[in-house]
């Protein structure tokens, strides 16, 4: 179909403190039904959205982080995390949830969804997008 566009969702805010991260994820999930070419990008404090072991009991806010694991089932498997943002926060990819998708073309082999990329690489990826939604 010629009507497939490249959609990029930029997430640059911490998961809690404001609702942007959670409501962004809601857009991504609804948008998945439209069969577009979807990528997600996590920069700045947005990288905290993917931290493993999130526990929000003490703050009394819903922990929505398990939802990210469902993205693979929605064919959303291009999740870019900015290396500089991880470095600045003393984090590595091992601090993040292990998000995977199953590749239909390779006998449903499980593959990693998260790619750590430099800001220069991210700029190139952004340049290829048709629609950029930032939250």
């Amino acid at each position: 179909m010629s009507n497939v566009k490249k959609f990029m969702y930029i997430n640059n805010k911490a998961p809690y403190g404001t609702i942007y991260a959670w409501e962004s994820l809601e857009v991504v999930l609804i948008g998945a039904a439209f069969d577009q070419d979807v990528s997600l990008m996590f920069t700045g404090d947005g990288v905290y959205q993917l931290m493993k072991g999130q526990d929000t009991k003490e703050v009394g806010i819903k922990n929505f982080s398990p939802t990210y694991a469902a993205l693979g089932d929605y064919d959303i498997n291009k999740i870019y995390v900015e290396k500089e943002s991880l470095d600045a926060r003393g984090l590595t990819v091992d601090d993040l949830m292990h998000l995977v998708w199953e590749d239909e073309d390779e006998d449903w082999a499980e593959k990693d969804s998260i790619k750590v990329v430099t800001s220069a690489e991210l700029a190139e990826i952004l340049d290829q997008q048709d629609v950029v939604l930032s939250f």
């Binding site: 959609f7 857009v27 609804i30 948008g31 039904a33 439209f34 048709d130 629609v131």
Partner: peptide, 9 residues
């Protein structure tokens, strides 16, 4: 939210 995605398309 589909209305937002549609606007993007």
């Amino acid at each position: 939210l589909g209305q937002l995605i549609e606007a993007g398309i």
